[in-house]
Design a protein around this nucleic acid. Structure first.
Lengths: 348, 348
DNA sequence: CTGAAAGCGCTTACAG
DNA sequence: CTGAAAGCGCTTACAG
């Protein structure tokens, strides 16, 4: 519990002015080798830690930090991106004093993504938060930002983009968790069905990785058992219903496990009821209203939360730290695979 | 994104000095009704929010906030309280600039608890963090603190203490979650065993509440099903082994669910192996080394984490907010019932 | 009851 | 290459 030593004491001990101490601390130019070394020695010896309150007061008052958030438009049947936005707003509330300002931009397809990207680039933001939904367009944005030294944080999905900063859940691992959970419910003789509900944009990278993780769980945890796993890709624009093949699986007497790789698990229970199928356990993603309703009714056993608010929150905080303290560690984060059941719902 | 309005602007608009604005903001005495109302109107109109960086710079430099942490001694076979301490240390790191200082005190029984409590009271700390393990002694401490207006935060266990501040997991709910999880694994025809491993201090309040929650799950979720649940209280000082009655349950062919209400779930798998019992699913608490080992070996299916580091962290932050901003909301917290399996272990 | 002023520790623009 | 000084927004001790 050594008492606070400040830049003033350092200056005194090293026989320099506080301005010089500051230059050394921030590794700025214009300090003679000799002086720098002397000051550095004192800094080390005293274990100096900067007073962030003072630093931020000064900084926040002078230079604003402007962050652009480019996310999918919230539509009637797709409210998910409200949540990262809530997290962003919370972070802005925390950091408003310290000069952080955010502007929102919305996209709905590759064209609008590119258009909004260009608007953002034109305004010279200090940092950008977005989601890498369109491979080419995202890459173009990242390259542009890399040239300008503008940090970018990508939420929700990890895609193959060299050197990019991701704040998202490891979808492969989430799939393995889903495997573990369903395996507990349906056992090694169970029949497993992976349901990819595909929307207009095609199969999402996250869904692919989740399915891979799910299958990897059974391959590594029960090697040689040859657990029966089927995949159903179903387009969301048609009313979901079942093919004869699926019908056959569902009539199977064994315990069944259904893994829905996106946030629409709630469509499944209705279909099962329609065909009087039972002994089915469902695991899905995301705490949307419909899924929660199913959890409460015990129609879904487990939901996996990817903590979208936290993603937004961490992205803004990470950018802030990077921009103010050159600390890049907060630009990436592995979001926990949070398991939700009916009983811990309101606590998670 | 309205631009920052500070106490200076408020003062100008209300035709008073900044000192007066400050008095109004902090509801301090010595402002005429008329002036106060005028200033309040301006504050409301402008939506003033205090700059916390400035406030804290000023405050932190002047008055230190001294917090005493009174927790169980860490022993060879009981390292749990390292974890809340880690959380406390993290909070202190975050808040050191802002004047927060912590001293640790350790107890091992009611006598040492009281002794250390008295030491703490003698030193006039600004706030106290402890654990309410001894009913009478805790009550005495709380009453003393209440007289002095010293805030106290209690970790780990919620006990019947009027008006106390708890930061802990809802043990009853955690028990319900355990019920849900084991029920998923062993089903309604399963045989369930609640294992209370009792140490020298007797059955802990948390264990009692967890068992109640576990039983409540079956009562409310499967009313009338009369699921078979047995309780085994076993003292930890003798080598754990099984009575003839327990032996009979274990030989039962049905799927079995074992709920260990404390952090010693890891003792169970060895016993099961010794008696060649299988088809048993185990749920326990806490991510200690031994339990994690069992999780990795697939001997334990689920662990429930009560996030001890977070408890310590939140306690210090909560006290800090209360002491600096009279905001008591952080003095209580309901810690999520976090579910851990082998596959999400390193992400939670 | 109210105001004027000092100062928290840091950063920066300016002067030399 | 280095120093002296101003000022971020708030809180408080002091003066009136």
């Amino acid at each position: 519990m050594e008492e606070p030593v400040g830049i003033k004491q350092i200056a005194q001990m090293a026989n320099v002015s506080i301005g010089t101490v500051d230059r050394v601390l921030h590794r700025r130019e214009g300090v003679s080798r000799h002086t720098r070394e002397r000051v550095e020695a004192v800094i080390r010896k005293t274990g100096y830690k900067k007073n962030t309150a003072a630093s931020r007061l000064r900084l926040g008052a002078h230079k604003k930090i402007r962050i652009a958030v480019l996310i999918p438009e919230v539509t009637n049947n797709w409210g998910y991106w409200e949540l990262p936005k809530c997290g962003v707003e919370k972070a802005v509330e925390d950091l408003h004093d310290l000069g952080v300002r955010v502007s929102y931009y919305y996209f709905s397809d590759p064209v609008s993504f590119t258009k909004k990207s260009e608007q953002i680039l034109g305004k010279e933001f200090d940092g950008i938060v977005t989601a890498p939904f369109f491979a080419e367009e995202s890459k173009a944005l990242l390259e542009n930002c890399s040239d300008r030294n503008t940090p970018v944080v990508l939420l929700d999905t990890r895609v193959a983009l060299e050197g990019a900063n991701f704040i998202c859940q490891d979808a492969h691992r989430a799939g393995m968790v889903a495997g573990r959970l369903l395996y507990g419910l349906a056992g090694e003789n169970g029949l497993y069905i992976v349901v990819n509900l595909v929307n207009a944009g095609g199969l999402h990278e996250n869904n692919r990785q989740r399915e891979q993780g799910f299958r990897a769980f059974f391959d590594t945890d029960l090697p040689g058992k040859n657990v029966e796993i089927h995949t159903v890709d179903y387009p969301l624009d048609r009313p979901f219903d079942i093919s004869p093949e699926i019908g056959k699986w569902l009539k199977d007497k064994r315990a069944k496990g259904v893994f829905v790789t996106n946030s629409r698990a709630y469509v499944i229970p209705g279909i099962l009821r329609k065909y009087h199928v039972d002994n089915v356990h469902i695991v899905g993603f995301d705490l949307n209203r419909e899924n929660l309703e199913c959890l409460r009714n015990r129609d879904i056993f487990f939901l996996i939360n990817q903590k979208p608010e936290e993603q937004g929150y961490l992205a803004v905080r990470g950018l802030f730290r990077y921009l103010t303290e050159k600390d890049a560690s907060g630009l990436q984060a592995d979001i926990p695979v949070e398991i939700v059941v009916r009983e811990n719902l309101f606590t998670v």
